[in-house]
Write a protein that binds this DNA or RNA. Structure first.
Lengths: 338, 338
DNA sequence: AATCAGATTGGCAGCGCTGCCAAACCCTGT
DNA sequence: ACAGGGTTTGGCAGCGCTGCCAATCTGATT
């Protein structure tokens, strides 16, 4: 509809200035509500902006303002996936805080691929953001070098088990695994299995499993069996994987899942096969999905402060505080399945 | 860690040019792999870039390139929510296509608020994107004016029931409602109810309901009862709402839900209350969530081409084709609940 | 050796906006 | 009428990069 028009040049700030009969910098000041100007000027500028349908060019603004404080109102965010609702939630939390501070975000999705993350870091840095929020503590050497060289604030979110580059906001995934194991042990479960998805890519899941396994071992009831579904987590994968696990080890008392999606699938398997939960088999998830809480038997799981992580990440980025690790903790939800 | 350093100026293209002993435009050409240059030059530039750790400044690049074809490699996307997995899926589809064409995206979330959408349109336009992808066909007058004035390509996605501004990619939500009703009627269900979430905000859900209701009425079996849960859709809301609906109308044969989240909740209600599905009560959802397919009884629902919508939206935006409506259709999944 | 098309290169004017600074203005008080 | 201090204002030089164009170089051809 528009593309073929005779190259109508867009309205610029200078057009507005001319139309309002004031100088360019005056328009700029009025639009950013910064510095001082008279009411009369303000009205004239507002009128001209409305009449001409002026839309400021942020590109130019950020370029001109770069170097100064007000310059960058942009945050880059890299998440590993959009498939798992966890990450949209993180974005949601970040977005709310971002809006609040007048920031905008540019988002990259790495598909759990470190190489891709490195490339995304480069791409996002080229926007000259005020800060970058990435997922997890593990990055390629190249990625770390780029982050370091960028000179901007970095937030690594979700995971606190390790050393961060700058700010770290999250919780201990290892701790989650330990506490999950302790809960199952406390409830008397002894022969315990694990059903997970591809852990070589999801390092946080691997850390949870490590904590879980170690706690069980220390208690003298080592992890009896594991079943890893290829590909990303999903209810279907969880259902199938639990089926395979139980085929090998029908004597298990409880199963720990890499997350609620998988656990939900496991629950459905039990429902379909008539396996009594938790009487015959206990199920334990991770992430406290809404759906898992609405089930006839609410899933026993761990709630993580997803929205809060996103919000705090943005907040710290904007705050110019010291490099530090913020542990937002987690909460065990004792449902009806374990 | 970085903020307090002595304002080290970032490496610019001109630094690279000097270091490589070539002109600025040569560096620019090499970096964009455009125009011609010798192998020797390319190597020298590559070396300098690596040695200096140069990161191009996209802001400057886009500003300088604006007006030309190659200029804008940016697409703005506005979605109403991140809570429902549908929208991340749309983003996922768009992202894949975007990467393919070397585009980047800037995302805005409107929270189903038309005013907020209008504001976001302004915000995204100020990035001077090559195109904008928005959700649905209904916008405020101001939003329409801005979109029209922008002179860029617009894609309205998900809904094809109405007139679009430029390109429309989606399916008929009304048609979904009609076909859902036809399916239930064909299976012999007569006393049919509806459980939905706040429809004043989710206009697509309202269109589905309208189609559903009309088809039932025309068949002589008008919608028996509706129950609207306040707030966004969720399994918990669906479960509670079905409870309320059945309390009023225990004689219903089937219930149509505004989407799978709600339907899942409804299914859990039945499970918990011992209502036989579909013998005693049939359930019909919308969106074909993975989870719904993994249940012991797969949910009867409608699969929508979410990834494809996102991908096609981007594709059309880049293609510079005519303004048109692309109907990607949908598919009825005859599960075990209706 | 002169010629010529094509490949390769560098210089420089913007892109639209903001920061800085000097100029103009305003209102007191004297 | 004039100085003094604050408030408003406009001009203009960049921000870092790309587009354009003229200059230079290359190798083959006559």
């Amino acid at each position: 509809m528009n593309v073929h028009e005779p190259e109508r040049r867009l309205v610029t700030l200078s057009d507005v200035a001319r139309a309002a009969g004031v100088g360019e910098s005056t328009v700029s000041r009025v639009l950013r509500n910064q510095g001082s100007f008279s009411k009369r000027t303000q009205d004239r500028v507002a009128e001209a902006v409305a009449r001409l349908g002026y839309v400021p060019n942020r590109l130019a603004g950020m370029l001109a303002g770069s170097g100064s404080t007000a310059g960058a109102k942009l945050v880059g965010i890299i998440i590993p996936s959009l498939t798992n609702i966890v990450f949209p939630d993180l974005l949601r939390g970040a977005n709310a805080a971002l809006d609040h501070d007048g920031f905008q975000s540019v988002i990259g999705v790495s598909d759990y691929d470190p190489e891709r993350e490195e490339a995304l870091i480069g791409a996002l840095l080229s926007w000259r953001p005020a800060g970058l929020i990435v997922t997890g503590l593990e990055h390629t050497a190249g990625a770390v070098a780029r982050l370091r060289a960028s000179g901007i604030r970095i937030v690594e979110m979700i995971d606190t088990d390790g050393d961060g580059l700058d700010i770290v906001v999250g919780f201990s995934n290892r701790g989650v695994g330990c506490d999950s194991a302790r809960h199952l042990l406390a409830r008397g479960y002894r022969r315990i299995g694990y059903v997970g998805h591809d852990i070589t890519r999801d390092l946080r899941a691997a850390k949870r499993l490590a904590g879980f396994r170690e706690t069980l071992r220390e208690a003298g009831h080592p992890l009896a069996e594991t079943e890893i579904a290829p590909g990303p987590s999903s209810a279907a994968a969880g259902r199938a994987a639990l089926g395979r696990l139980l085929a090998r080890r029908p004597d298990l008392h409880a199963v720990y899942f890499s997350n609620d999606d998988m656990a939900l699938g496991g629950y459905f398997h039990c429902l379909a096969e008539g396996v009594a939960v938790p009487g015959r088999l206990a199920l334990f998830g991770f992430n406290a999905l809404d759906i898992a809480a609405a089930m006839p038997q609410p899933l026993t799981t761990i709630r993580t402060p997803r929205l809060e992580i996103g919000a705090v990440a943005v907040e710290r980025l904007a705050a110019d505080g010291p490099a530090e690790t913020v542990d937002l903790g987690y909460e065990l939800i004792a449902g009806a399945t374990a």
